[in-house]
Structure formats: C-alpha cells, structure tokens
Design a protein around this nucleic acid. Structure first.
Length: 241
DNA sequence: GCGACAG
DNA sequence: ATCTTGTCGC
C-alpha cells in the first residue's frame, strides 16, 4: 500500500513537501508558501486539449472516510474515456485556505491509477483565487506538472460585480489589488461559477475551457462525472465495510 | 473585536 | 463536504 507520494511525470522533480502531509496548520501554510513560487502563470495552456480530467471527492457522514475520483473526458465529445477512484481518509482537518492538504493525497492516488495522462486538470475548488494564491488547483498542477484550473461553486476570497445574465458573460474576481479569477456565467440566468488559474494556464484559456465543458449544466461535465463516480464509490465502500 | 471562510 | 423540507419549472 504505497501512500501517495510519487507522480509519473513530475513537473518539478525533487519538489520538497510536494505530496507529504503537514502535521500542523503552520506547516501547511509553510508548504503552500514554499510551493507557490513554482506555479507557472505564463501558460497559456492547450487551446484544444484532447482530454480533460475532472477531480472530486465525496465524504461519508462522519467525515472520516472519503472517496476520490478522477474522470478523463474526450474534450470534443465529453465522453468519459478513462477514470479512477479510491477510498481513503482525509489527510488534514478542513480549514479554509488549507483545503488542498485534505484532499491532495487521495486525488494524487487516483491520478496515479489512470491509464491516460490528461491534457488538463479541472479541479473542484480554487486555484489562484486563494488567500496565498495557492489553492487546490495550483497545488495539483505544481505537483503533477500538468496544466490545471480551478472551478469553484462559491467564493473563498475576492470581490466582484455580478456578470450579466447570459451564458459566457463574466466579471473579474479581484483580491488585494490582483485579478485572481473570473466570475463566469455558464448558464443563462443561473448562479455563476468562480474560475481561476491553477498552473500553466492563462485565465482567458481557463474561461474558454470551462465554457466548452458546460454545454448544458452550470458545472463542468468533468466535475459532474467525477462527482458521480466518487459518490457511487463511497456508497459501495460504506456498504462493504 | 466581529464576521467570513473552497470542500 | 453532508443533511433536510418544500417549491418551482421543464
């Protein structure tokens, strides 16, 4: 039972603390500050990725059991072409801003079990739209070396003006003088999502990719398929033991 | 000091 | 995240 530590194609070999879990809040913050400079903000990322991965985690009632899932979709048809899921334990208590430490080991474990190496990771949470500009999407991107973006359902930091009601409209998400993301309307008249860059992606491209992944629903198909997979896996795990 | 706070 | 009752609309 290897924990989660290695990655097939490390973007930055020898990255310290990349996938080991800190033992305290102070250590967790230190890990984020240490890895933050490794984020590639130049991008621009693939304009026409062949495959896009969605990542999500589901928790059992007690919060002591979780299932992490990754689904890989054909970017053109949005069909699932590969997937991996695994159950485990949260690696850290939930603390806003340190959320990534909680799910990272389980997600890396699932990524390791993929047969396909996706061209882009779409994370359920924020990237740069984070107090220290190092949310889950940045962390996963740096550790895997893959282009990544974050799509959050609710804000963590920042202020914004409401985008107009039509799908495709957006407004800048600003925090501390920085544009850290976009508030993007993916469906007409429906609550927007919060898009931010994770790693090796431009904000413009991240926006385009999210729109390509939302032909019908508010959330990206990647997120929806991963959500279903980890929920099902969690239900099975709870029945089994 | 008080509220807010990804999932 | 997860739980929950009810409501509106396709």
């Amino acid at each position: 039972m290897k924990p989660s530590g290695s990655w097939r194609t490390p973007g930055t070999p020898g990255t310290p603390g990349a996938s080991s879990t800190p033992g305290s809040v102070a250590e967790a913050v230190a890990v984020q500050e240490e890895l933050r400079p490794l984020v590639d903000l130049v991008g621009p990322g693939p304009s026409a990725p062949a495959t896009v991965a969605g990542l999500d985690v589901a928790y059992a009632e007690g919060g002591d059991l979780l299932a992490a899932a990754v689904t890989v979709l054909d970017a053109r048809t949005l069909a699932v072409v590969d997937s991996a899921v695994g159950v485990g334990r949260p690696a850290f208590d939930y603390v806003p801003g340190l959320f990534a430490l909680r799910e990272l080991p389980a997600l890396l474990g699932a990524l390791d079990r993929l047969t396909t190496l996706p061209d882009l990771l779409v994370c359920d949470g924020h990237g740069l739209a984070h107090p220290r500009r190092f949310g889950l999407a940045c962390h996963l991107g740096v550790v895997t070396g893959l282009p990544s973006i974050g799509v959050g359902k609710t804000p963590l930091v920042g202020t914004w003006d409401p985008p107009s009601a039509e799908r495709g409209s957006w407004s800048s998400l600003r925090d501390g003088g920085d544009v850290v993301g976009r508030v993007l309307r993916t469906r007409d008249g429906v609550k927007p999502v919060f898009v931010s860059v994770g790693h090796r992606m431009s904000l413009e491209n991240a926006t385009a990719q999210v729109l390509a992944l939302t032909p019908r629903y508010r959330l990206p198909e990647t997120t929806r398929t991963a959500d279903r997979l980890c929920r099902d896996a969690l239900a099975e795990a709870e029945q089994a033991g």
